[in-house]
Structure formats: C-alpha cells, structure tokens
Computed example of a mutant assay.
Amino acid sequence: MGTRNGPHRAALLAGAIALGAASALTGVTPAFAAPVDVAGGSLDWGFKASFRAYVSTGNGNPPIATSNGATRNADGTFDFPATGGTYDAAAGTATVSYGGTVVFSYPAHLFEITVSNPTLVVDGDGIGSLKADVDLAAQNGGTDQHLDQAEIATLVTTAPTVTDGDVSFNALAATLTASGASAFAGFYPAGTALDPVTASASASGEGPTDPTDPTDPGNGGGGSAAQTVTAAVSGGALTLASAGSAVALSAAMPGQTATGNLNAVTVSDLRGTSAGWDLVGQVTEFTAAGGAVIPAANLGWTPSAQVATSALVAANGAKNAVTAGAPVAPGTGLGSSRTLCSAETGSSLGSATCGAALNLGIPESSAAGEYSAVLTLTLA
C-alpha cells in the first residue's frame, strides 16, 4: 500500500456490527473473534509535506534517506512494512509495529533527525496515537535527543475497512504532540496538523488474494510482474524572467499620453511549497537632457496576467492561479510600489506570465526632449 518555521530548528474507532441469526432459536451465545497476530501490512506517512519540501532544498547527502525496509512513495511520503502486533476488527483495537528508518538531514541548518519503527496504537474510543523512535542530532550546540517509542502524534480514528479479516485505516488525521515537537527541534508547535496516516494489517504475510490474481491456483495460466517506480522531487526556486529590457513609448505632445507595453515577464514557482508570491513595480522620475523632469507618478499601467499552460496533469487538486494587479491611472501611478500580479498561498505552483499596458501622462508644462526612466520589478 503505497500511498519549514525557522530554518535553524530543525483513528481509529473500529465500529463493527455483527449480523447473524437470532441466538434465541438455538440457545447459543454468539462468539466474538479474538485478536489476531499481524503478519503483513504497511503504514504510509510523511510527517509534514512542508517540512519535506524544506529539507529537500538542503545540502544533506541525500537530504532525505530511507533504509531498513522503509521506502519513498510517489507522493513523497514514506512506506513502512508491518513487523508485528495484534488487531481486533470487531473490538476496534490495534497495536501494530512497523519497521524502517527515515533520515532528514540539513547540515547547513545544523540538524539531522532520524525517525524509525513507527507503532500504531488504537484503543477503540476514537482517539489513537502514533509512536516512533526519534533521534535528533542538533549540530548547533543544542541538546541532542533520543526517544524510544515516544508518542509523536495523536490520531482521530475512524472505522477501518475490513476485507477477508484484514483491516486498513485510511487518512487518519494526525496532530503533533509536545514530545513530537521537541523531537523535531521545535520546527512546529504542539497541536500542528501533520500529514494523515494510512495503515493496514493482515493476519497473513501477503494479505487477501485478489480473485483475478494470476497466481490463484484456479487460474489456468498467464502471469504478471510488478515494479515499483520511485522519483525524488527536490524543491527548486522562485524566479523572474523578462522578455526584454527596454520599452519605447509612443511620441506625444504636452497634454497628451504616451503609450506602450511592458515586456512580458514570467514568474516560475518551482519551490514545491505553493507559498505564494507578489510581483511589484516602481519607476524613477523621467529625466531629459538639461534637467527636465516628468514625475514618476505620471506613469500608469493596466496589468494583465495568465497562467502558463502545460500538458502535464496536476495531482491531488493542485492548482496554479495568478491575479493581475489593479489598474493605476497617470497622476497616481508608479511613483510608489504597485502590484503587477500575484499568486495566493496554495495556488502558486508552476509558471505565470504578466504584462501591462503603459500610459505616461505628459504634463502641459513639459519641455520638449527625450525622457527616460527605470522601471524596477521586484518578486517576493
């Protein structure tokens, strides 16, 4: 089953309803299934997506590593194989151990955090916990920590899916505990929402057999082979590129308006965090030979913006959206910083192209001459 705050810091309620013949007809009390030993299954969890994205930009070698049975899922989370424990689908309880190790390493920010051997604990009351061994190597003179099976997250539990006696718990909401916050060097405070937890447990090492599985003895032949393909996606940068460096406005007389178009600029947000951005512009005074000046406030613009198209399919509802800034009229224009375009947090992934129609109002008192100014665009 595969499913950043300072840079120097480093459920499961199983409600089972038994349906059967009325015992009054036989005088026999219905029997309840006993807990079963775990022989197979897996746990998928990523701690927190923003933390993974942050560490992925670091100088660890590699920044994030898996070992001892843990593997990386296609969505960047981690898969830990079951190693033991018990579960009772009817009672809604489970204590399942999973194996494997994940290391988050960022030497430039002076930490290495090792998480291993997570354990899922469910008491059947709607609240569960996720425990793990955690080692913090604080390389900035801080206090190292070693925690054995510490509760690092509480879980809001829901009824499992039961298939042939095997159970799976899907997307359980997880919240960071005080001990988890400490183990992760105070990157996030206790109470922070973490990535959801998905887990399974089975009484057999292989889990239920799919009736269409070609390994079923009843199948007359054929075969299949599966290969797991993994890809590590590291965070990139927030960049700005311009299609040109000079704009020539139309000639105009005093009292008229000189017009033109800003060279299109492209903003690319490849950080992998969708943290949002703003692109603003401001112009200097227009000056001509002999000291003649047209004030900067006389340059206005009408911004435009659109998302760059892509043939690729976005995952998990991710979207890219850009908003053009408000028009600014000559006389109240770009003498102060004005927004050309922006993208909100949660919708800034990918690239967008921004531009503007420029309008320079020429005061009637202006001397004849060739005026120039510098328009600076700043991305943050």
Rank of each mutant, 00 (worst) to 15 (best):
S366H: 08
S336L: 12
L334A: 08
T287R: 14
A292Y: 10
N320W: 04
V313S: 06
R338K: 15
A318C: 10
G335Q: 09
A296I: 04
V293G: 09
T339K: 06
G325T: 05
G300V: 01
V307S: 04
A321M: 13
K319S: 06
P330K: 00
Q306W: 06
A321I: 15
S337V: 09
E344N: 12
A315V: 13
A357K: 10
G317H: 06
A288V: 14
A297S: 08
A311F: 01
S348C: 03
T287V: 15
A343T: 08
G350Y: 04
T287D: 10
A305Q: 00
G335C: 11
T302L: 02
S351C: 13
P303D: 03
V293P: 07
T302D: 02
W301I: 13
L358D: 03
A292D: 12
L334P: 01
A305W: 01
V322N: 00
S336I: 09
K319G: 00
A308T: 10
N359Q: 14
L312V: 11
S337A: 14
V328A: 14
A357P: 12
G300P: 01
G355C: 08
G335D: 08
L340K: 00
S365Y: 13
G355E: 06
A289D: 11
S351D: 08
A318N: 13
A329W: 00
T302Q: 03
G350I: 05
N359E: 11
L349A: 10
G291H: 10
V328H: 02
L349Q: 04
S348Y: 01
I362M: 02
G346S: 10
S337E: 09
A305I: 00
T323H: 04
G350R: 03
S347P: 03
G331Y: 05
Q306A: 13
E364P: 05
T287Q: 11
A315T: 12
G346K: 11
G333S: 10
S348E: 02
T323G: 01
G350W: 03
G350A: 04
G331I: 08
Q306G: 09
V307W: 09
T345R: 07
R338W: 06
A318V: 15
T339Q: 05
C341I: 10
S337W: 00
G346I: 13
S337G: 12
L312C: 10
A343S: 15
E285T: 08
S304P: 03
G290P: 05
P327C: 04
L312H: 12
A357H: 13
A305K: 00
S351W: 01
S347C: 04
T345F: 01
Q306P: 03
E285S: 14
A357W: 09
L349P: 02
A297Q: 09
P363A: 00
A315D: 13
V322P: 00
V313Q: 07
I362W: 02
T287L: 11
A308W: 07
N320T: 15
I294W: 05
R338T: 11
T323D: 04
P303G: 02
L340S: 03
L358T: 07
T345Q: 09
I362H: 01
A329S: 02
R338I: 06
T287N: 12
V307Q: 05
L349T: 04
S348M: 00
T323F: 06
